[in-house]
């Protein structure tokens, strides 16, 4: 009897899990991981900014945010002030058609991208 109860409970848990599983893009997103509250390094460190610029060219490309964050169909990033946590969150979770990078980049790399984009806010042209 005890085993049966466990099986029933397991089945109920499985059904509940299936019912809660996101099924459709645009209707339900995968559950985001906890958002790191503080960067693991100084975002103004030139070596971190430089690493971020490499990652930016590889992942954000001229197709999306334009070279060095210049004007594109996606939002321009130069000369604009962004909240640090917002940037991390937007890169991690995306906003269609911008892809979510949480499964492609580890949090450290996302912070490097944040550092690079933050470095563009004082650029005048």
């Amino acid at each position: 009897m005890g085993n049966r109860s466990v099986r029933v409970a397991a089945l109920a848990l499985l059904l509940a899990t299936i019912a809660m599983t996101p099924r459709a893009v645009g209707q339900a997103m995968r559950q985001p991981p906890p958002l790191p509250t503080t960067p693991p390094f100084d975002l103004s460190d030139p070596s971190i900014v430089d690493a971020g610029s490499h990652l930016f060219r590889q992942t954000c490309t001229g197709y999306c945010h334009g070279a060095e964050g210049r004007l594109s169909r996606a939002p321009a990033l130069r000369g604009r002030e962004f909240d640090t946590r917002f940037l991390f969150q937007r890169i991690a979770y995306g906003a269609p058609p911008m892809p979510a990078f949480q499964t492609l980049l580890n949090p450290e790399d996302i912070w490097k991208l944040v550092a690079y984009i933050k470095s563009l806010q004082s650029v005048k042209e």
């Binding site: 893009v25 339900a28 997103m29």
Partner: peptide
Amino acid sequence: PVVNTLFFQP
């Protein structure tokens, strides 16, 4: 939901 992580979409 993996679609949201892809370059070629939607």
